[in-house]
Write a protein that binds this DNA or RNA. Structure first.
Lengths: 340, 340
DNA sequence: AGCGCTATCGGCAACGTTCCCGATAACGTT
DNA sequence: AACGTTATCGGGAACGTTGCCGATAGCGCT
């Protein structure tokens, strides 16, 4: 193995470990000649300081934990991409945890991250998580925490999210402008802050255009398997039938498209469809799907930057705040205006 | 912070650290009553053993490094999903590294992982990597290594891949059966083993059906930005024009579809299209795209299982081997037979 | 009484590193 | 000549944990 330690160098050069240590970090109180000797020998043996020993001594690990519901998800994989890139440049490593949308798993992951002594934690809440006391306790213990995307307003922590209100407002208004009036909203569990914000944006757009808000047009998903079909059926059974679907996630958008196709409904003629999503292939879908694009990578980057700031100047860092990253509406064929 | 140590418990209970340590792991040589006392006190203070101290002592970190070109990629995000799930159950954590298809970055990442003292390494080669001596040295140092997907035949290590030959063979034969004879192949850099295997499968299918192999129909991508368009143009400029495209990756498949649509070519009437891909939305594309599905998650799972086996019974583990996971061909509209 | 045994516990070293405190010798200063 | 300074280095503790080697007391046996 690659087990060159400072002791090996000290023994070989007939020096003390202290001297070797100081020589390696270029201390002024070491003779230049000695330094050279140590440096060269270390170089030759390919010496690498043991970060585990360092961690034990300095009580920090130079690792940050990232807890997400699912890696295999357009949004999260892009966010992690951004996180890893920044963390890498700042000398931090990224340890990944998946909750699989389970509250229990989230708590366990959190504890594991703590006992791993990560320097900070980046979390996107599981859809089951309605109670955030485990995160409050974490904060009370002094662990730097930044939430992203799936955040909670009950927590006094830095949070990085897309501008969900504005995105939803624009999506809804876009549907209204394109002639739709009975707009259904398929969304994710209601206690998530992003759900509430999007719903608020949706309602605000309806209100602005004098369209009454109808609770029956709202459906909350639970990230269960094959749940989209039944939700779509319920909505389609209503009278009058909705003429547009606005969905709140990648999964729902794709699921909806598939479900509508299977039921032989034409998009956008029978029903218009727009979703919050990060699918790079949205343009290639049948039909090309209008989307509200969340800058997933940027959200990840901003979140990890804030976290590192929190880690490195713990006391005198910026106070907790909610950072909103603007979304972009991309209109495609799935929300085309139907004449007649 | 959460800094309860074994010493704190020892001091509070007026015991030695050794006794506390043994009590906590239920050693037989500790009085039942003492054990109870220690256990209860530890529970009450929420004691968690410090894994860093453990790592230092046992010279292992219970962490595995995963080096991939890109996280935000259908295949890799699903593979990591499988990896994390298994690793979690076996008590290992997953540290992620991205090479961004850069050889240099791959080497640096590898060194970082080593100096982090990961217990083992899971690697999928960058497209720039033609030389694998850095991995050979790694193996010589005794580091357990398993390659997946982007592997190299020059390395005597366990490798987990999709059955690329068979998948490519079936895809090509499928195109031939559907009436195509001039089948272009867009693929990834030629020194990657998966490229060679897929090319071999493609050639074997052509040969079986008496179709001559034409080098001009092969195009090698480099993962550069916007490279698909020019490649497609070159292929389309040929006389006679290809009547089918067979692509070797997610990126190429989606890029190809977009490029062909932009050039107003009808799929499958003018050109058939099938790709190796893990896009879950392939069915929803326009047209629904035929694919050779690689079981990405399973590849990740098998790879990490082999790696952990290698880690835990280092000497007496299964010898290096190449494990092929079967692919599945899903025929959709993009390769429909055109009559007339 | 002397012996060995068991049950129960403590001391110490070690993992690799850094840092605080000394130690030593060669100087220059008074 | 006695002292302070400077340059250069070593010793040892500490981070949290485990494991080896003892240490002690109580017990039964000869």
């Amino acid at each position: 193995m690659d087990n060159v330690t400072i002791k090996d160098i000290a023994k070989a050069l007939n020096l003390s470990t202290s001297t070797v240590s100081r020589a390696l970090r270029g201390s002024y109180e070491i003779n230049a000649e000695t330094k050279r000797l140590v440096m060269e020998y270390a170089e030759r043996l390919n010496y690498r300081p043991n970060p585990i020993a360092l961690s034990l001594k300095e009580n920090r690990s130079r690792a940050i934990g990232v807890i997400v519901p699912q890696i295999a998800n357009y949004f999260f994989s892009q966010a992690i991409n951004g996180i890893e890139a920044i963390a890498y440049n700042r000398g931090y490593h990224v340890i990944i945890f998946q909750t699989h949308e389970s509250y229990e798993r989230e708590v366990v992951n959190m504890q594991q991250a703590v006992s791993r002594r990560v320097d900070g934690l980046l979390i996107s809440l599981s859809s089951e998580t309605s109670d955030v006391t485990h995160l409050k306790e974490l904060q009370d213990q002094g662990m730097p925490v930044v939430l992203f995307d799936r955040v909670s307003s009950e927590l006094n922590a830095t949070q990085v999210v897309a501008d969900n209100f504005k995105g939803a407002f624009e999506a809804t208004e876009h549907l209204i402008w394109s002639g739709r009036r009975r707009i259904a909203h398929l969304t994710i569990p209601p206690f998530l802050s992003i759900t509430q914000e999007r719903l608020a944006g949706y309602r605000a757009a309806l209100e602005k255009h004098g369209i009454p808000y109808d609770e029956n047009l709202i459906r909350y998903g639970t990230f269960g398997p094959d749940e989209v079909g039944p939700m779509v059926d319920e909505l389609l059974a209503q009278n009058p039938r909705p003429d547009a679907f606005f969905t709140a996630s990648d999964r729902l958008a794709a699921g909806c498209l598939g479900a509508l196709q299977k039921r032989n409904l034409r998009i956008p003629e029978d029903i218009a469809l727009i979703g919050f999503t990060n699918m790079t292939v949205a343009e290639l879908l049948s039909p090309p799907m209008s989307t509200v694009v969340q800058p997933a990578q940027e959200i990840g980057q901003v979140a990890v930057e804030r976290l590192i700031e929190l880690i490195e100047r713990k006391q005198k860092a910026a106070p907790p705040s909610v950072i909103k990253i603007p979304t972009t509406l991309v209109a495609r064929d799935s929300t085309r205006t139907i004449v007649g």
